[in-house]
């Protein structure tokens, strides 16, 4: 029937089926041939992961062993770009540098890491503090290791800071143009000691309590600002308004002192010290990198500098 045929339903139906059939066939065929080929190609590509989009988006330069890439590896990395791309060949001699500044910074990182973990288990209150330390030592997995590591890293950091300063002095590295950075360093030394000292009280045991008592009792004797210090009484200082009261938040080492040293230890001083560290590292670069090992200077050349310093 032309009309029936002509209405197109039948014919179209057949045509659609054919088309679908053919299309599915094509799809199956492509699964059989294209996919394996693509997969093969892409697996082949994965053999060099440095060419993947993910990789190149993270590391924005090639990694062939060329001088250019060695330099870019340092310069295009936010953490490593504290370093210059190249340094004097003798500047890596650790008999000269002792590496103590770097070790100090690394210990600061270790202390931040272990310190944050310790904060999860510690409440700075008189009721809880000591129990928390006991809990940490006996029940928390690796809690004892964590606490030990925090303590020894702190002691080690104090020693490393001293040795760093000792080296910097012995090599005359505070001299022009590094005077200002030496001063930042002295402040960092003070903050390192204060960090360690404020942490001493936190276990709330006899050792910390009496160490901090002895330490802060000295503040009573501050001239002008302490109630037992020279001229303190004349300025109206009492145990309840002098500088020691301000440090402890009370006239004795008690709950407020615990809270204050906790906040100084975990927030206040680390922030200030971090800012100073940023300045310290920045100035090492700006003042011309590590001071040496420099060529020795003769007495006759002492008053005519080789390189003119502005």
């Amino acid at each position: 029937m032309p009309e029936e045929n002509g209405n197109g339903k039948n014919g179209n139906r057949v045509g659609l089926l054919e088309r679908v059939k053919a299309g599915v066939k094509e799809d199956v065929q492509s699964l059989k041939t294209d996919m394996p080929a693509k997969a093969k190609e892409q697996i082949e590509g994965l053999k060099d992961p440095t060419k993947t989009q993910v990789f190149t988006s993270i590391f924005r330069h090639k990694h062939d062993d060329t001088p250019r890439n060695r330099a870019l590896g340092v310069l295009s990395n936010v953490f490593l770009h504290l370093h210059p791309a190249k340094i004097n060949r003798d500047a890596v001699r650790y008999s000269y540098t002792w590496g103590m500044g770097g070790i100090t910074f690394y210990l600061f990182i270790v202390l931040t890491f272990t310190g944050v973990l310790l904060m999860f288990y510690y409440h700075p209150s008189k009721v809880q503090a000591f129990r928390d330390v006991l809990y940490l030592e006996h029940d928390v997995p690796f809690g004892k290791l964590l606490r030990n590591m925090h303590r020894w890293a702190a002691h080690l950091m104090v020693i490393a800071v001293w040795l760093h300063m000792f080296r910097v002095f012995l090599t005359g590295s505070y001299k022009k143009p590094r005077e200002f950075n030496w001063n930042i360093g002295v402040l960092l030394l003070v903050f390192t000691l204060l960090l360690s000292f404020t942490g001493y009280l936190l276990p709330d045991d006899q050792l910390g309590f009496w160490a901090v008592t002895v330490g802060t009792n000295m503040a009573r004797a501050t001239p002008l600002l302490g109630h037992e210090g020279p001229f303190g009484k004349m300025l109206g200082m009492t145990p309840y308004n002098d500088v020691r009261f301000g440090l402890l938040g009370g006239s004795i080492v008690d709950a407020n002192a615990l809270l204050r040293s906790y906040i100084w230890h975990c927030i206040g001083i680390p922030i200030v010290a971090s800012v100073l560290m940023i300045v310290h590292f920045w100035r090492v670069r700006k003042d011309g990198g590590i001071s040496g090992p420099a060529p020795v200077m003769l007495t006759s050349e002492a008053d005519k500098p080789r390189r003119k310093v502005e």
Binding site: F130, V133, L134, E137, K144, L145, R147, N148, M149, H150, R151, W152, H155, V158, L193, S196, F197, Y200, P203, D204, D205, Q206, L207, G208, F209, W210, A211, T213, V214, G215, I252, V253
Partner: peptide, 27 residues
């Protein structure tokens, strides 16, 4: 840290003075 444990004394007690009462070693 594995071989040596950080010190922990008795809970703090203002009525029991440590003798000698020492500051941290660096002071």
């Amino acid at each position: 840290s594995i071989t040596l444990s950080a010190p922990l004394e008795e809970p703090s007690n203002p009525n029991l003075t440590m003798n000698p009462a020492k500051a941290p070693w660096y002071f």
